[in-house]
Amino acid sequence: GGHPVTTQMVETVQNLAPNLHPEQIRYSLENTGSVEETVERYLRGDEFSFPP
């Protein structure tokens, strides 16, 4: 991942996926670069990993 992630982006995802840890959200956003894509992954039931 190398996309810039803002606190705003993390908070937006958190509102839609409250049971995800912020670190999981941030890591996913760094890989996708997209709030929409991260939320899609969540709704699909994809696994969210923590940063290594």
Score class of each variant (00 low, 15 high):
residue 2 G to F: 14
residue 30 E to P: 00
residue 18 P to V: 08
residue 43 L to C: 09
residue 37 E to L: 13
residue 7 T to S: 14
residue 35 V to A: 06
residue 51 P to M: 07
residue 28 S to M: 14
residue 4 P to H: 15
residue 52 P to S: 09
residue 1 G to P: 13
residue 23 E to L: 12
residue 10 V to N: 03
residue 22 P to N: 06
residue 50 F to C: 09
residue 47 E to L: 12
residue 15 N to K: 15
residue 4 P to L: 14
residue 38 T to W: 02
residue 12 T to Y: 15
residue 44 R to E: 07
residue 9 M to C: 05
residue 30 E to S: 12
residue 29 L to I: 06
residue 46 D to I: 06
residue 6 T to S: 11
residue 50 F to R: 03
residue 7 T to G: 09
residue 52 P to G: 09
residue 49 S to G: 13
residue 16 L to S: 08
residue 3 H to P: 09
residue 37 E to T: 08
residue 31 N to V: 15
residue 26 R to C: 07
residue 33 G to H: 08
residue 13 V to Q: 00
residue 42 Y to M: 01
residue 40 E to W: 10
residue 21 H to Q: 09
residue 23 E to H: 09
residue 46 D to N: 07
residue 16 L to F: 12
residue 8 Q to W: 13
residue 6 T to H: 05
residue 16 L to I: 14
residue 29 L to Q: 01
residue 16 L to H: 10
residue 32 T to I: 02
residue 41 R to Q: 12
residue 23 E to F: 08
residue 44 R to W: 05
residue 15 N to H: 14
residue 38 T to R: 00
residue 29 L to M: 01
residue 15 N to A: 15
residue 9 M to E: 06
residue 50 F to D: 04
residue 33 G to Q: 07
residue 17 A to V: 09
residue 41 R to C: 05
residue 35 V to M: 09
residue 36 E to V: 11
residue 31 N to F: 15
residue 1 G to T: 13
residue 15 N to M: 15
residue 27 Y to M: 06
residue 23 E to R: 04
residue 14 Q to W: 10
residue 47 E to A: 13
residue 16 L to G: 03
residue 1 G to K: 08
residue 6 T to K: 04
residue 21 H to L: 09
residue 9 M to G: 01
residue 49 S to K: 15
residue 18 P to C: 08
residue 22 P to I: 15
residue 16 L to K: 08
residue 24 Q to T: 01
residue 38 T to S: 07
residue 1 G to D: 11
residue 34 S to I: 02
residue 33 G to S: 06
residue 32 T to H: 04
residue 5 V to Y: 12
residue 52 P to N: 08
residue 50 F to K: 01
residue 18 P to W: 08
residue 5 V to W: 11
residue 1 G to L: 12
residue 40 E to K: 14
residue 18 P to E: 05
residue 40 E to M: 14
residue 44 R to M: 09
residue 31 N to L: 15
residue 42 Y to L: 06
residue 31 N to G: 08
residue 15 N to R: 14
residue 28 S to P: 03
residue 9 M to Y: 02
residue 34 S to K: 04
residue 10 V to G: 01
residue 19 N to Y: 10
residue 20 L to G: 01
residue 5 V to C: 05
residue 46 D to Y: 10
residue 35 V to I: 14
residue 9 M to V: 02
residue 9 M to W: 08
residue 45 G to Q: 04
residue 51 P to W: 04
residue 50 F to V: 04
residue 51 P to S: 05
residue 11 E to C: 09
residue 17 A to N: 03
residue 47 E to Y: 14
residue 20 L to P: 00
residue 16 L to W: 11
residue 38 T to N: 00
residue 14 Q to F: 08
residue 44 R to K: 10
residue 43 L to D: 06
residue 46 D to V: 08
residue 38 T to I: 05
residue 30 E to R: 06
residue 11 E to R: 07
residue 2 G to Y: 13
residue 11 E to Q: 14
residue 45 G to V: 00
residue 7 T to H: 14
residue 51 P to T: 04
residue 51 P to Q: 05
residue 2 G to N: 14
residue 24 Q to R: 00
residue 22 P to R: 10
residue 32 T to R: 00
residue 18 P to K: 06
residue 50 F to P: 03
residue 3 H to Y: 15
residue 1 G to Q: 13
residue 20 L to Y: 02
residue 28 S to V: 04
residue 36 E to G: 09
residue 15 N to P: 06
residue 3 H to I: 10
residue 25 I to A: 00
residue 49 S to R: 12
residue 6 T to I: 06
residue 15 N to I: 14
residue 17 A to C: 15
residue 8 Q to P: 06
residue 12 T to K: 14
residue 1 G to M: 13
residue 19 N to S: 12
residue 14 Q to D: 01
residue 7 T to E: 14
residue 48 F to H: 02
residue 21 H to N: 08
residue 9 M to D: 10
residue 7 T to R: 10
residue 24 Q to K: 04
residue 7 T to A: 14
residue 43 L to R: 11
